[in-house]
């Protein structure tokens, strides 16, 4: 599923002052492509991610996923579209504390009212090396394990587009590397279009393309 961004603009008010955080963004990400977006803190990476997820409306421009213009959809349509086509991996994992690892992974499928939920979740968690931690609660898991559960939760619905926000930002480099290796392996195998926001140049270099967000402009960056 391809992703097209054209003439995307977004500004915020800070007091009375308007700040143009995204000036005029244009990009095309092809189906199955893994793209990194890098940039300094406050450059607007997360704003871009929230626009791609339909969590915010741009001031101007379009975001098309597989030809469907997200910016033209109403809130309900976006919610449904997001649930069926998009997934997230967060830096802070954001696992629900009173659900086990297995239940956290099952949650998106439950919302989508799908079948064979438990079998699918167990299989994916086992694939991520967490077969022995299915019934553990988030506070019983290490950082690496928590992020692997979060990745499993993002992948379980087999989304067309995966949005990842600093997925290894909370992990040490060794754990981060091993988690991200698993991550890349899975998204490649499942041919998911992936947008990964990161500070880490080394992580960005593992992606197929690297886009740099600087001064509100998105530019192709060479590895």
């Amino acid at each position: 599923m391809s992703l097209q961004i054209s003439e995307l603009k977004k500004s915020f008010f800070q007091g009375a002052q308007q700040i143009q955080i995204l000036k005029s963004l244009n990009a095309e990400i092809h189906e199955g492509e893994i793209v990194a977006i890098v940039g300094r803190s406050g450059s607007g990476k997360s704003t871009l991610l929230s626009l791609l997820a339909g969590l915010e409306r741009p001031d101007h421009g379009e975001i098309k996923i597989n030809g469907q213009n997200m910016t033209a959809m109403d809130e309900n349509q976006i919610t449904k579209f997001r649930a069926e086509n998009l997934s997230f991996v967060f830096q802070q994992y954001h696992l629900i504390s009173h659900l086990t690892a297995l239940e956290n992974v099952m949650m998106p499928l439950e919302i989508l009212k799908q079948k064979d939920i438990q079998v699918r979740a167990e299989k994916l968690l086992t694939e991520l090396g967490l077969g022995h931690r299915l019934d553990h609660f988030p506070h019983q898991l290490s950082g690496g394990e928590s992020q692997r559960v979060a990745i499993a939760r993002a992948l379980i619905t087999e989304p067309k587009v995966l949005l990842a926000d600093e997925p290894s930002g909370n992990l040490d480099s060794e754990t981060g590397d091993s988690v991200m290796d698993l991550f890349f392996d899975l998204v490649k195998r499942k041919k998911m279009t992936t947008v990964l926001v990161t500070h880490s140049e080394s992580l960005a270099n593992k992606c197929q393309r690297k886009l740099r967000l600087q001064n509100g402009i998105l530019q192709e960056s060479v590895h």
Binding site: G42, L55, F90, E166
Partner: peptide, 11 residues
């Protein structure tokens, strides 16, 4: 509210 808070944490 919009679920932006999740993303803003890492901004």
């Amino acid at each position: 509210e919009k679920p932006l808070v999740l993303l803003r944490e890492s901004e």
